[in-house]
Structure formats: structure tokens, C-alpha cells
């Protein structure tokens, strides 16, 4: 059986290509359409907040970009290169596992439930992939991991196992672990949703630091409207697998055009 050949551009070129591009991306689970022909560009250094009701496809966007699941249609580019596809015989075909693994190096992801490796200390969590995947020497990896743990305020706990850390502390280690791979894009998937209210601040402080000091490109799915408003360059409101409305935070939160956005925001504000 010959693989299907796609005729998307094999490379995005030009001055102002986006760091991330979703082009007509569709994701289905059986009959359920989770992402419906999504177009989304993220510029380098941009912080995009993704909000919306549950089931609107916002987490799916991150999972597709991390290549944890395959898309059904369309194409995703990262830094001009296809992520979901690869070049073969003058066209593009669906990416194989090897291509995906290489492309994933560009992307880091933090999860709602942290997903630290429980049998490794905080430091070991942070050096595992740099040593095994990037081939860094152990000494270099440790040095870098210690800098990052220091940056997230967790250097003192470097030799603790995750079970001895609070949720907020685990999430900060998880952020350091992702950064250790030097990704071009960081994804935050509801990173404060599983945390007790009093420790949310320690995680948002770290993310704030990343935005202001390190100018990292980020996509953040969140339920914290206040934080999204404060920190993001752009807010995307998802509804039914599509971007219902997007714009600068002042516009989305201050003067939303779409009725659905208005309804969602007033419902969220009421709940708080």
C-alpha cells in the first residue's frame, strides 16, 4: 500500500513565519469532532492563553502539538518544519515515530498532574532526558538542572523524591524538567488546576518569570482568567473545537464580541 502523499508546503519560509502553525487541523475520536479544521499561528516569544468550556478542545490543541496523539487532518508546523508530516519522494507523508520523536525536542509540556517520575529525585527527573536523549554529560546536565531548580526555587529540595513534595513544588520541578530540554515552545496544560489554592501562586510566579525574563514562546490552557489576562499577549476562546474569538486580553475580557464568549466569561466570573 502506498502512503498518502500530501501537497502542503514542505517548509515554511520567509521573514515572519510563525513558530507554531496549525493549518486546518482536525482531530476526531470516532464520530466526535474535537478540533474542527483549526487554524492557529503562534509567533516567537508570544504567550497565548487558551480558555473555554470543558470539551471545547483546548487541551487537545496542546496534546496535538506535543504529538501525544495523531491528528486526522491538516498539518502542524513548528519553526517552519512539519511536525505531523515528513518529506518523502517530493511530497509529504504522515510522520513516523522517529520523526515525531525528533520534532518533540522543540516542545516542552507541563501537565495538570505534574507526572514527575516518582522513583527519581527532583534532580534525577531533570537530568534524565538531557543525558539519555540529548547525550549531555552527567556533570553538565546536573549543572544545568541545578540552575533551573534554583530558578523555580526548588534547589533545596533537589534530592527529594516527588512523594515528599507538595503539589506546587512538584509542578515547579516539572517546569524545570521540561526547560532542561531547552524547548522552543512550552505548553502548560491546566498546571494549577490540581493545586490547593494557597500554592497556586508559587507556580504562577515561575510562569511569570519565564514570560518576563526568558521571553519563551508559550501556550497555556487555564481556568485562571485573572492570570490569563495579566500574563498573555493573546487569548483564544475555544468553543466546539474551534476558536470562537481571539484577541488581546483587554479586548477578550473587557469587550468580548461573541455572545458565547460573553456567556462563558460571565458564568466563570459568577462562579468565582
Amino acid at each position: 500500500m502506498k502512503p498518502t502523499v500530501f501537497h502542503y508546503p514542505a517548509k515554511l519560509e520567509g521573514e515572519d513565519i510563525p513558530l507554531v502553525r496549525f493549518h486546518e487541523v482536525t482531530k476526531r475520536y470516532g464520530d466526535l469532532v474535537v478540533l474542527d479544521s483549526l487554524d492557529l499561528d503562534v509567533a516567537e516569544g508570544e504567550m497565548v492563553a487558551i480558555i473555554g468550556p470543558s470539551g471545547s478542545g483546548k487541551t487537545t490543541v496542546l496534546r496535538m502539538l506535543m504529538a501525544l496523539e495523531k491528528i486526522n487532518d491538516g498539518i502542524i508546523y513548528v519553526d517552519g518544519e512539519p511536525l505531523t508530516h515528513m518529506s518523502r519522494n517530493g511530497g509529504l507523508v504522515w510522520a513516523d515515530e522517529k520523526h515525531l520523536r525528533r520534532q518533540r525536542l522543540n516542545i516542552g509540556m507541563c501537565f495538570q498532574h505534574f507526572n514527575l517520575f516518582p522513583h527519581m529525585t527532583a534532580l534525577e527527573n531533570c537530568i534524565e532526558a538531557p543525558v539519555q536523549v540529548l547525550g549531555m554529560s552527567k556533570a553538565d546536565a546536573i549543572k544545568r538542572a541545578e540552575e533551573l531548580l534554583d530558578m523555580v526555587g526548588m534547589l533545596e529540595k533537589a534530592h527529594e523524591h516527588p512523594s515528599r513534595l507538595s503539589g506546587g513544588q512538584q509542578q515547579r520541578v516539572a517546569i524545570a524538567r521540561s526547560l532542561a530540554m531547552r524547548p522552543k515552545v512550552m505548553l502548560f496544560d491546566e498546571v494549577t488546576s490540581a493545586l490547593d489554592p494557597e500554592v497556586i501562586g508559587e507556580v504562577t510566579t515561575v510562569i511569570r518569570k519565564l514570560v518576563h525574563k526568558h521571553n519563551l514562546t508559550m501556550l497555556m490552557v487555564t481556568h485562571q482568567m485573572g492570570f490569563a489576562k495579566e500574563i498573555s499577549d493573546r487569548v483564544c476562546f475555544f468553543y466546539d473545537g474551534k476558536i470562537e474569538e481571539q484577541g488581546p486580553p483587554d479586548q477578550i475580557f473587557g469587550n468580548p464580541k461573541s455572545e458565547r464568549t460573553q456567556q462563558f466569561l460571565s458564568a466563570v466570573l459568577e462562579a468565582n
Binding site: R101, I107, M109, F117, A129, Q132, V133
Partner: peptide, 18 residues
């Protein structure tokens, strides 16, 4: 072993063997 562990390993580009 929770699914999240597989996903974390995948997101760090660890090979299946690793």
C-alpha cells in the same frame, strides 16, 4: 503505571526502550 508517566516520557522524547 499511570498513563501520565508514558506521556511525560514521550514529551521528553525518551525512546520506547528507555
Amino acid at each position: 503505571v499511570p498513563k501520565g508517566q508514558w506521556e511525560a516520557a514521550t514529551s521528553l522524547s525518551l525512546s520506547p526502550t528507555r
